[in-house]
Every structure is written in C-alpha cells, then in structure tokens.
Write a protein that binds this DNA or RNA. Sequence first.
RNA 1: GGGCUGAUAGCUCAGUCGGUAGAGCUGCGGACUUUUAAUCCGUAGGUCGCGGGUUCGAGUCCCGCUCGGCCCA
Length: 566
Amino acid sequence: MSDSQDAPAEANHPHSAEHAIIEARRAKAERIRARGDNPFANDVAARAAGCVTCDIAEVRALAASAEQGGRYATDQVEAVAAGKTLHVRGRVVALRSTGGLSFIRLRDRTGELQLLLSEEKMGAEYTRLHDLDLGDFLEAEGALTASKRGELSIEPLRIRIITKALRPPPEKWHGLQDVEARYRQRYVDLVANPAVADVFRARSLIVRATRKALDDTGFLEVETPTMHTLIGGAAAKPFVTHHNALDMQLFMRIAPELYLKRLVVGGLERVYEIGRNYRNEGISTRHNPEFTMLEFYWAYATYETLMDFTEQLLRSIDAALASAMPGPHATWTKARSFALDEPFARVAMNDAVAAAAGKTGIAAWVAPALHGGGAGLVNLLRDDFTGSMKEWSKSSARAKQIDWSNFRKGMARCDNDGERLFACYEYLSEPFLTEDYRAADGARSLPVFIKDYPFETSPLARRNDARPELVDRFELFVHGRELCNAFSELNDPDDQAARFRDQVDKKSRGAEETMDFDEDYVRALEHGMPPAAGFGMGMDRLCMMLTSQASIRDVILFPLMRQRAE
RNA sequence: GGGCUGAUAGCUCAGUCGGUAGAGCUGCGGACUUUUAAUCCGUAGGUCGCGGGUUCGAGUCCCGCUCGGCCCA
C-alpha cells in the first residue's frame, strides 16, 4: 500500500509545458466556437450536393486503376474520378505547410490518405487551418487528384475540424516508446504505434478463425459461469469475492472445465467456450491475472484425435491470418523461431526424460535411462540424489545448465514416482525442448506434444487402458512455451470421487493449489458422460506466438498494472 | 519474493571527473504553392520520479521509497 501524498497533477501545474500546450489547443477550440462551429461536432454528413462519403480504403479502391508502382498520375486519377466530390473523415496524423499549399495525412480505420489544400482553390476556407492541430479529427470534401510526387490526394474545397484534440500526440517519428505509458494509456499507443494496432487486429482474426474451425467441426459455443462456488478445473489460486444478497463466498473461475463436461453429460457432445479466466498468481511476460482461454470437449474423440486436430487448427488459424493481413504476417513469420508447417513431434514423457537424461552425459544415468526410460532414472534419483548432485552437475555443458537446486527441492517435495517423473521432465527436458526438437531445416524448433503424463499429476484425466499409472494426456509446447493442455476425460464417477478425495487430502496437508470436492460434478458423471477428450489453449499465448510478441502484455489491450499515485 | 536495470521538457533522447540543465520533435511568432520525419529564421518550455544523506556545491555519489522493464522463483 502506498501512503504517498497526492502529487500535483502535472497537467494542471500552471507553469508546465504540457499545460501551455493544452491551453493553446483550448484557445483554438474557442476560436472555432466563436466562428459558429462546434469543436466537438456531431453533424458530420456530407454537405455539398452529390458529395459521397467514403472510407479511405474506398477512395483508394476508386483510384486503383490509376496506380502504378505506388504512384498515381494526376491526369489518370482525375479521369477515373471525374465529376465526383468525395467526403472523408479521420484523424490528422501529419501536417505540413509550404505557405499557400498545405498537406495533411488523414487516417481512418481503413487507411491513410493525403489532403492537398490550396489557398488559391479554397479561398477563405483555407484560414481554418490556423485552428488545426495534429491529432484533431477533420472532415474534407473535394475532388480526387494526385500530387506532383504521385501521391493520391483529395483537394478539398471545404474542410471542418470535427473534434479538437486537447492533448498533443507523441513524437511523430519514434512514437510512444515508454513501455509503462504504452500499457497505461493504450489509446495513445494505438494511435502512435500502428504496429500495435495490427497486433490487436490479428488477435480479433485469431479468435474468429478459432471459432470458425470449431463451428465447422460441429461444435456448439456456450457460456458457463465465471463465478464459482467451488475451486475446480485446474491447479491454481483463485480470486475470492462475495455476493451480498446471497451472503455467499464466490471464486472467480480458474477454468470452465467442470461446467463444460456437465454439458457433455447433457448431450451437447461437442462444446466450446472462449472466455476469461482468473488466477491469483504472479505477473510475468507469460502471465496476466486475467487471461483468455479456449476449452472444448469432444465426445467419442480421444487425445490422439486431438493431437491431429490441434496441428490442423493452428495451421488454419495461421493461414487465416496470412490471408487477411499479408504484410504484418510476413513480418511476424520472419521473426518466428519455430516451424508450423511440418508434423509436430510427439514424445511420451517417459521417453522425453530418458532422452534428456542421455544428453546430459552423466555416466550413472545412462544405463537406467536406457533400460528403464524416465522411470529408470526416477528409481535411481529416489535413492541417490543429494550425494551425487555436485559431481553430476559438472558432467557436461548440458548438465551445467540444469537448475539443480530447484530440481533437488522439487524432487524432495514429491510423494510418489509419478510426481518424480514429472519433476524430472520439468528440470531435465522442458528447458531444452527447443534445442532437442528441431524442424527439418535445422534452423527452427519443432512444436512438440509431450504425452502420457503420470496419473498423479492429472486429477481429471482418464487413465491409459494398458498402463494405468499413466493418463491419456498431452501438452503442446511451441518453442519451449506451453500452449495447450488436453486429455481423454475421466468419466468413471467412482474414480473421479477418489481423485477429488485425494485433492482434499493434499489440501489438508498444506498444498495450496488443489481442487475442491465437487459433488454435483460426480453426480453428473453418475448420469453418464460419453467417452470424450477435452482441450485447453491460452488464446493470449497463441496471439503472442503468431504475432511474435515477447510479452503477454503486448497482446492484452489493458494489462493489469500496479496503481499509481497521480 | 530475489538478482540485474531504468525514471531528465508534452514526446524521443544526450548530460564526461560532482562545478551555470541540453538537442530534436511538438508548441508559439514569421517566410515559403507540390510536401512525404518538408525546409529556413526567431521564441517559449524543467519539482532532473519521491524523501533523506554526504559535500562549499548533487541530474551525477550514498541510503530508503514509488512506479516500470528483463531474468529467476
């Protein structure tokens, strides 16, 4: 908590430069009023008879046939638009004057267009420029033309400032660089840094393409509660809230899983939800307290079905992005260090651990890992870890990169061999996924499905029929980052009840991230849930991956920030 | 929570060994009828994040705090 006193708001400080700039703009707004215009106008329909209101993209489309190599010939432009008067509106993002001739770059949602203003043509209208600032919204009516340099332009006979911007935009060349200001004042970021707006256009397309892929596969989109009475569906700490009228404690959901599976019981055999989840945990470049997740449940499918579907889904989303935003997509793909276009690796956790153990070059590990796989290594480490750790940690370059101290602590906390195998995976395999699994070109990493998890680590997944110590589960890692988690669903109500009891036991022994016993969910399973497979994917992480953004805050419009005394 | 790192004009950034706080953009005034970060002349704009300390003297050195960033947990 901050007990700092309220600092004087800088903009109100009568001597600050910011204050002077705002006052200068306010004075212009007053001049506009004095002239009889509204500096915050609402009546923005075209005025001149026969004048057509156009988006900027429509203006460009009209002149498309006159374009050659990005340049427009004046006579051709004037020929295609002969006799037309166009009405455009947008924000003024650049403003230059050479005296009797001025150039304005106008931006709307569809693009940018130059206005070429001539004092000779406009007469008294031209003086309205004196009240214009960068950032203002302007409307203009005039004929289409091209400048001497071949830039498509409208040559207005009439202009009007329709919204006065009282604050100045950031520096025109560098934009807004201050990361904190970019997140706190996203409205400025979006105007000043067009590449940022592209990322959020991409986000919308990604979500739309995801919906389309699922809708086309016969899924039903549903909405389930985000306020829960029990903690369930994932291992995470919830936000706690309270309903006054019912005097009831509620948890903001950490996952929609248990509700979606109730719907599968109810006969909605393919359901999905794309929605916000809340986890009361730390903030990092990969974690925001609220985040968007896709979950779907698919009756009569198995986790094997889902691996195929996942590959196809990711490729189709990326293709949709490429076709809708070819320019930005090319830039993002260039920055990608992973391959989406060849089959993803599929590796059982036991094998992944054994392979990673082999790569450490630790002599004592070779035989157990070779003959017993990851489980063989677990047998060795359970009995002899601390004594040999020092010597092992120096065995090879790979061994030196392992986080031995946390590995040791993690192993010590484990209650059983399943958890130990998972710990081995976490410290020996996962940090090296990008170097161990490479695309055919060798230059990019290959996405990898790590599958067949120990059942102890997965309280909602179905046991493997042949090997009951495992569950039919996978996680997908793209360039070392967890993107998806999926499994064949546990539908045996008695087994599910036993696993809930185990979670409750763990909680009573002090574990923090456990699920509550959900009696209603067990009752639902008692009514019968068909065999099904379920899937979860972080949409924010998917956006990061496809648009090559390093931080989750770059794909969330308003990431959570600490409060700041203003 | 830990390590590293940052905060100087509205914006983007300099600021050397501790010695008068700088530039560009923006703003304001002026010139200019084909600009593309226009150009040129003039001018204004500062609680150097906040609070202590050392010193004749602190943007600069030391301590604490606030708010970020990166890495780790």
